[in-house]
């Protein structure tokens, strides 16, 4: 199918992009990698008046080090994320989860920031960002602001981005010495997650000092499994302790029912996958 007609802008700087969005009319869509937007437009489930394409905004690409964080440009492609040495060193979870996104062609086009701003509850990267306590740098005509991950994901497909704003970069605290694992559950290779769990675990000897657990597709937004995290903090690094903690993974979640899974099954999966993710992340 062919999308409905639209006006097209291709800025080369963030400032130009913000201007283009501001002058784009009522219904402006921002095109990052386009790997979700273009299919939706082809199906004519979206018919924006203006599309602002960020692919030529060079300043939004790449990963850099900044003090105790790494900063990922919103337009860094999934492919570049997977092979980036800074991500491999400080936040390997991002690469691990990104490798499970769609397929290699889509990963060549799709972007880290685009996936986060899309905020699909079945998308893999929001829960990862949440588990890593990432911060989202948002640009608007009046300047920039930073929003923690916990506040960025507001609702189903809805983020803290206000009209006219752009997500420009994501700051991820360096996680040196942490174990990480992304446990994804889906039916076929290309499919979106039915449920997935991002686990980030810091051990001190025989104990788990700290754990951060992000849940994919367990509600309209990505969630932290706070109950599991509490139970793991200071717990013995044993299979039993992990299993006991993981049993709390479904607390305060509100997953949907769809073709692939009904809510009670998702509750169950969250527990099993959390146990597996934490076990792997803790090196057990």
């Amino acid at each position: 199918m062919i999308p409905a007609p639209f006006a097209y802008a291709r800025p080369t700087t963030v400032d130009e992009a913000l201007q283009a969005v501001a002058s784009g009319g009522e219904d402006v869509k921002i095109l990052a990698g386009g790997q979700s937007l273009i299919p939706v437009m082809r199906l004519r489930l979206a018919a924006p008046e203006t599309v602002v394409d960020l692919t030529k905004v060079a300043e939004l690409r790449g990963v850099r080090e900044e003090g105790d964080a790494i900063v990922v440009g919103a337009m860094t492609t999934h492919s570049d994320v997977i092979t980036d040495p800074l991500i491999a060193r400080y936040a390997a979870l991002i690469a691990a989860a990104t490798e499970t996104v769609a397929d290699r062609q889509v990963r060549h086009r799709g972007t880290f920031g685009g996936a986060l701003a899309h905020a699909d509850p079945a998308g893999d990267l929001p829960a990862v960002a949440l588990a890593l306590d990432a911060e989202f740098v948002i640009a608007g005509l009046s300047g920039r602001r930073t929003v923690p991950a916990a506040e960025f994901f507001v609702d189903y497909l809805t983020t803290a981005l206000e009209e006219g704003e752009l997500l420009v970069e994501i700051r991820v605290p360096k996680h040196e010495g942490w174990g990480m694992h992304y446990e994804k559950f889906n039916r076929v290779a290309q499919a979106w997650s039915i449920v997935a769990v991002a686990a980030v675990v810091r051990r001190e000897g025989d104990r788990i000092a700290e754990a951060k657990i992000g849940l994919t597709n367990m509600g309209p937004t990505p969630l932290r499994a706070r109950g599991v995290e509490e139970a793991l903090a200071g717990a013995e690094a044993t299979a039993d302790a992990v299993a006991a903690a993981a049993a709390r993974a479904a607390e305060n979640t509100s997953p949907s029912s769809d073709l692939n899974a009904q809510a009670d099954y998702r509750h169950h999966l969250a527990q099993v996958l959390t146990r597996r993710a934490v076990t792997a992340a803790a090196g057990l």
Binding site: D53, R104, V106
Partner: peptide, 11 residues
């Protein structure tokens, strides 16, 4: 490799 149905020609 990209899927040419998911890239606009202008891009």
């Amino acid at each position: 490799a990209v899927k040419s149905c998911t890239v606009f020609a202008v891009q």
